[in-house]
């Protein structure tokens, strides 16, 4: 599915879809995917019980070198995530930058980023505040309000151990909506980014869908990415083909990592 402009896309509407048309949860799918991963990892790694742990992340999946010198980009991303959380709580930030800074400072996480923020000079701080305000405008347009009955969860983390703990699939989702446990799939995952969406988005979304399936035993309904740089969104239906692609990506990434 190609990225769409915000004017053409109602993200929440696209995620919700038509409830009656939602697919049934396939209870055997998670077990099958796990077995496929375990077999594939054994073929690639062998019985390396003492091997160092391979941590699979979206970045490793894409064979993407770590970004250096992007401290302000990380700060911008962290602040936008805080603004998303505030919006989920029903708070309409009067001053997005100041509210995001207050939330980041109170989060108890990202101490390094909080220190970095304190060290910014006034020019950099003003520039960052302007960027955050602009991104927040896009966020507010794309996610105007989230009903509490959709059970929104923020910062959902995944750490799925495989191969006896030698491989750990890690990831986190900025926003999860919908409750699991029913007969039909209804959980939607949203990945927020402050950069533009590229070809890597599909792989990241497939990976997140795989993590959610392994973690809960139920495949999610849809996964989406939202760029606050331009308001573009990608929404993907979670199908067995999408999850199979994710398994292949994980196995390739582990093989690459083990060979390196």
């Amino acid at each position: 599915m190609t990225p769409a402009t915000p004017a053409a896309t109602d993200l929440l509407g696209a995620l919700r879809g038509t409830p009656a048309l939602r697919p049934h949860v396939d209870r055997g799918l998670a077990g099958g995917l796990r077995a496929w991963l375990e077999d594939g990892l054994f073929e690639r790694l062998g019985a390396r019980a003492a091997a160092p742990i391979v941590r699979v992340t979206p970045r490793l999946l894409l064979d993407d070198p770590p970004v250096t010198g992007a401290a302000t980009a990380r700060l911008r991303g962290a602040l936008l995530v805080q603004l998303l959380r505030l919006r989920v709580a029903g708070l309409e930030p009067a001053s997005p930058f100041e509210d995001a800074v207050a939330a980041l400072g109170a989060s108890g996480r990202d101490a390094e980023l909080v220190a970095l923020l304190c060290d910014l000079d006034s020019d950099d701080r003003s520039r960052l505040a302007a960027e955050v305000a602009a991104h927040h405008t896009v966020l507010a347009t794309s996610l105007p309000s989230l009903p509490a009955r959709w059970s929104p969860r923020c910062g959902v983390r995944y750490a799925i151990p495989l191969a006896g703990g030698a491989v750990v699939l890690r990831g986190d989702v900025d926003l999860a909506l919908g409750a699991s446990g029913g007969s039909r799939a209804c959980v939607c995952l949203v990945d927020l980014t402050t950069s533009t969406l590229g070809s890597a988005s599909d792989a990241t979304l497939a990976y997140l869908a795989l993590l959610e399936t392994l973690r809960t035993g139920e495949q999610p309904l849809r996964v989406a990415a939202l760029s606050t740089a331009d308001g573009a969104t990608v929404v993907r239906e979670v199908t067995s083909e999408l999850l199979a692609d994710a398994v292949e990506l994980v196995l390739e990434a582990v093989a690459r990592s083990a060979a390196a």
Partner: peptide, 22 residues
């Protein structure tokens, strides 16, 4: 705490609770 910190606590706590309830 500022209003934003209280709102963040609400989201963190509800996410934690949803995890247990699910």
């Amino acid at each position: 705490a500022p209003r934003a910190a209280r709102a963040l606590c609400a989201v963190e706590a509800s996410t934690w609770a949803e995890r247990l309830l699910r």
